[in-house]
Write a protein that binds this DNA or RNA. Structure first.
Lengths: 346, 346
DNA sequence: CAAGTTACGTAGAACAGTATACGTAGACTG
DNA sequence: CAGTCTACGTATACTGTTCTACGTAACTTG
């Protein structure tokens, strides 16, 4: 009955290896997971067979009972030039721990994000790492109940079931605005996004909300509250719409603008250039994220660097410890640093 | 014996659904795959149970016998701003066919690329789509024997076992160089990468090789062969090294430079700006890929657009038809188009 | 109305691993 | 020298699907 050594076609499975090495499949499995109870002789026998046959364990099968040694990483969109560093940092740590990272791209839609997270769980990935998701804390908690979850770029310090890793956006914004004030600017406006949810407790929410808080705090500390103004632009609208062009009109034009992201800052700097508005003489600009484009000499955009690689690394470490069994939440905050370039004046 | 309805903990499997709907697991599976042999009554019974229980099929288990409805997409690196469009195009087609796309990032190292492809196959993904891989045709053929394989940005027109989708890099380069010639430039140089393999038949190889061919052809057609010069820069060295700065020295400085990629072109345009070399008056520049940075008004870099989204879409279509069973190879070539901006003169 | 199709469902093997219970040989103890 | 402990391997149940083979009921057809 066990004699049917019929050719299984091509695929070399754990059984092929076991047969070749003259041991049981479980023994092979043990060697693979270097579990307890394997002698050196057995181990080497199995290892040579694996080598000889070019065997690779199937992650799919593995996922049914054990772990898959893979992590799902969800990005909201690929266009944001800030993400590569985060990914690189995370991959560095995960790679060292022998985890593979598979990335899903959410196209900036909550529904796509959700279906991707579901897929990652369906694939039995060992954990899911979210970067700047467009999901509410409730939804996140729902996922956290089913899989180890770590979130980057989403402030939720009271979350009990998942970890968050963030740059201190309040401090970053404050630093940027303080630098503008120190350079002598007084009429400092800010560009931000339109709010999607209004029911957030203080200290929670999306990163741009935190940056607004930092902006307002810095303005207030300098006694400039009455000059503060936040231009809320609809997302994906770009800066072509009336709001941002209005910002450049001579009448109400501020002396300086703090942009919640380089996405806005770069559009603004280009818009200014196109209309002959000199930067920083007529308009100083500070961005956020310190993307590669900001660093191009021809652009020279001052921008807050939030150490993407470190965010990624810390998040990956949190994930690993959570996979190891940690259940107490961790909420990590990293210090950003303003990178000063031409666009913010002297 | 079948009476042990002991609580399985939490997980709702195909069995839970079958029990709830009062049918066999196979019936549920059939509904899921909408296979032949399911009555409307049975279908709706199963569907309501699925809905009620919030059941989701496990991709991992699915991978063991059937397909996983997931595609592995391998990117060489994330930094290249040309990739998002390709990904978006591919996701568009895959998404419509209900496939999930999981992305792996190769960090520009062949060994990492290989381990990612292996992982994707270990996860039993239904196909693997490679973008500008650093792998040889032989290695690619090896993978193609084991899984449906489509490659973007790697010319291998004689490959029998996998498909390729490319922009016509020879034509693109020729168009770029012809445009420069038409604008009156004669001393036109090119930047490229250092060759890694020299044993390629004509018509095969990496994209920059093709672009060199197009450059040389255009120069020859204009009788400028003796003025042609290719500066080969080591990869990842950036443009800080001696070669590229040399290019800007007054003595041998060309009138125009065709860069194999915006990566070089942007560095060059910034380098020129920093040194007071006017673009295009002192030096005209044309890049390749038409990345977002090239389109910024402040940069104004002319660049060859190779329709990334279309590349992605075509590749995804090829993948789907290959998964459906096609075995004859397809080698698709798309027409690029030069986007003219300030940097290439009048 | 018996025989032959056709449609619908089901049981159970298969897939490629993990994890656990259990048997055994050798070392250690009193 | 019998009894216990421990280290090591093995057998086997288990995971969540797909898929093949088969049984049965309803519907045609002669």
């Amino acid at each position: 009955m066990t004699e049917k050594i019929r050719e299984t076609g091509e695929r070399v499975t754990i059984r092929t290896v076991a047969e070749d090495a003259g041991v049981s499949t479980a023994a092979v499995s043990k060697v693979l997971r270097n579990a307890y109870g394997v002698s050196d002789t057995l181990r080497s026998k199995v290892l040579t067979s694996i080598e000889k046959l070019g065997y690779r364990p199937s992650t799919a099968a593995r996922g049914m009972r054990g772990k898959t040694y893979s992590i799902g990483l969800l990005l909201t969109e690929m266009e944001n030039a800030f993400l590569p560093k985060v990914v690189r940092g995370a991959k560095e740590v995960f790679g060292a721990a022998n985890y593979q990272v598979m990335i899903g791209v959410g196209e900036a839609q909550a529904s796509i994000e959700q279906s991707l997270i579901d897929s990652m769980m369906d694939m039995r990935m060992d954990g899911v790492l979210l970067v700047a998701p467009r999901l509410t804390g409730t939804v996140l908690a729902g996922y956290a109940a089913k899989t180890p979850l770590v979130v980057i770029g989403h402030h939720e310090p009271s979350a009990e079931t998942f970890d968050t890793v963030n740059s201190d956006d309040v401090a970053g914004a404050r630093e940027a605005v303080c630098a503008l004030i120190a350079s002598g600017y007084r009429d400092i406006h800010m560009t931000s996004l339109s709010q999607r949810r209004f029911d957030m407790p203080a200290g929670e929410g999306e990163v741009f909300t935190m940056r607004e808080t930092g902006y307002l705090a810095a303005m207030q500390e300098a006694g400039l509250s009455d000059r503060a103004r936040i231009w809320r632009l609809r997302e994906r609208e770009g800066c072509e719409g009336p709001p941002l062009t209005d910002l450049l009109k001579v009448g109400p034009r501020p002396e300086a603008v703090f942009c919640w992201s380089d996405i806005h800052a770069l559009e603004l700097i280009n818009l200014a250039w196109s209309r002959g508005v000199r930067v920083p003489e007529d308009l100083a600009i500070v961005g956020y994220d310190d993307t590669p484009a900001a660093g191009m000499p021809i652009v020279g955009l001052s921008s807050v660097n939030q150490q993407g690689a470190d965010l990624g690394r810390q998040a990956a470490r949190a994930m690993l410890s959570r996979i190891e069994g940690r259940t107490t939440p961790e909420h990590i905050l990293l210090e950003p640093a303003l990178k000063t370039r031409r666009s913010s004046g002297s």
